[in-house]
Design a protein around this nucleic acid. Sequence first.
RNA 1: GCUGCUGUAGCUCAGCUGGUAGAGCGCGUCCUUGGUAAGGACGAGGUCAUGGGUUCAAGUCCCAUCAGUAGCUCCA
Length: 663
Amino acid sequence: MLTITLPDGATRTFESDSVTGNEVAAAIGKRLAADAIGIMVDGQLQDLSRPINANAKVSIITPKPEDNQAMFLLRHSTAHVMAEAISDLFPQVKLAYGPPVEGGFYYDMELATPITEGDFSRIEQRMAEIVRENRPFTRYELPQHQAMAALETQGNAYKLDNARRAIAQDASAVLSFYATGQPGKNWEDLCRGPHLPSTGRIGAFKVTSVAGAYWHGDATKQQLQRVYGIAFFSQAQLDAFVHQQDEAKKRDHRLLGKQLQLFTISPLVGSGLILWMPRGGVIRQELELFMREELARRGYSAVYTPHIGHIDLYKTSGHYPYYKESQFPTIKMAQRDSDDQSEYLLKPMNCPHHIQIYAAHPHSYRDLPIRLAEFGTVYRFEQSGELSGMTRVRGFTQDDAHLFCTPEQVEQELKSTLDMVLLVLQTLGFTDYQCRVSLRDPTSDKYAGDPALWQTAETTLRKIVSESGIDSVEAPGEAAFYGPKLDFLVRDVIGRQWQLGTVQLDYVLPERFGLEYIGSDNQPHRPVMIHRAPFGSMERFTGILIEHFAGAFPAWLAPVQVSVLTISEKFLDYGRSVLSQLLAAGIRADIDDASDKIGAKIRRARDLKTPYMLVVGGKEQENAAVAVRTRKDRDLGTMPTDEFIRQLQMEITTRKADSVFTT
RNA sequence: GCUGCUGUAGCUCAGCUGGUAGAGCGCGUCCUUGGUAAGGACGAGGUCAUGGGUUCAAGUCCCAUCAGUAGCUCCA
């Protein structure tokens, strides 16, 4: 006798001591039994065919794209089908590991001849056959020694390793296998499960890409081939997904950066080195201006430091030689002048320079906090495979600042720096960000300083975050070597996460450089440092910003805020007078004086995503007016030129995200 | 750094199984002076990423290098 509780609290009782998910679903309804693809038993996802041997709370999983459990079953099962297809087509393949992941699935495998994109269609064809055959996923379990023996015979070291790891994790682990069809007759794989009832439940799928991946993510180990795929319950869902991907790609900052002439990269200058074009330069200038205003308001001092520093500086800070391989090679004076043994480094960070400014003269506790700010350009030799547009580069400018304060001031200063990061995100309309509390990994030795100070620092950061009320996740092992930090992460159009703003707490560098201030007790004390950069890097931030706005920047950031479009050359003089009024009012404006019709001029300005177009012809000239049009709306009608300018100036100076002309 | 893919005009791309390069947009000149998402004509513009090799002949095949790209690894 079993009692099964459903999500709504209703119960079903069964006479036997064991009941399968299929039987539970059938007891609820015929339709549900037909739809069902899996079952949650006391919070555990299971095959429908597995017996339930005790009273349990269950819910039936049906094929819904928004249900994570349903998608897990689908993706995991499709990974098996793909693995079978590849095994058929490439009999010498050794499968390693094939999990579902966010957005799809992959399977890692060893194969002497690489799979290429050209192979995708025949893999998909074979998969389609397996799906059409609608074979059941059949689970069977073997005692450990038998399972291991079976895997030994197969001679697949990866699967054996997987089994050993499962046993190492849980000595009583039962090893399960899933056959796509009948065990012993059809293809099968060591697998924890669960799976869909049968291959026929897979609606639509696509093999998407192939890439190298290291066994267990270890770059010293052998590289396997990872084949990626996606799966959906219906073709319509797959089509929608593909469409969405295509739309996302149109927002890619690398594409828009080219189209809108914002930045370029020249191989002659070097990989990963951004050249800001005039239109992109405007955006950066406006962002910097915004930041400078905030810095002034918050008691920061502007400083300037050079692009290189003596290597001893970084030996003292501890940055060198830990990060030797990710730096540009040192500049050795000895090559030119044998007497001078000096070595310089392109600066990989600004803090040591700022520390030298602090250390230039003694400080009283009355001077603190001291906040030194600089748009400091740093150089890091990122691996070639890591470079990506503006988001991962080898030279970038941080909106950096270092705060030197007393231990008592730490909390207040942290609060105000966090506040500044949030202001930046809010002003630019970022709501979909993640705050990561990056902590030390206690088992690693890459961290410097006294563990007790780390404890203090981490506790303080946690407190600040929880008081601020923002959502956050803790990430052990993500801290800087000198201290824990708060990182603000945003996704790009491809779904990759990037760190933008950061706030870092540091008790270590003041120690290393022997920094001091004289306290009210007339004794020397050690200051605490806070490193912070609300944008993070101007390059990365701008790259993400381009994608965030899909190139349609709010007026205050737009490279050109207004384009004057003349109806015909007869009105060029009037158009030019409107243009000079705009320029005189400090508005970034241009005029399209080509001998095109108005439709073509509008199209051109829209393609450049200019926020406002002012159409001027005879009617406007008579009334000292302009016909206003925004890049997204239609004709907004005419208004006096000075009225347009007044309203636009308001929109710009208040850095509004949306147009004041649309309601 | 590793694996796969890619590299043809300023941009987006075509160029079949090798036989010394094409389109659209953009650009220039001219015609047109047109009222809200492309008016018309003509024209200029290419060491086919670079360097080797195979071949009577290479944009096309092979190798290397450089760069881009997806993923892995890394990210002070």
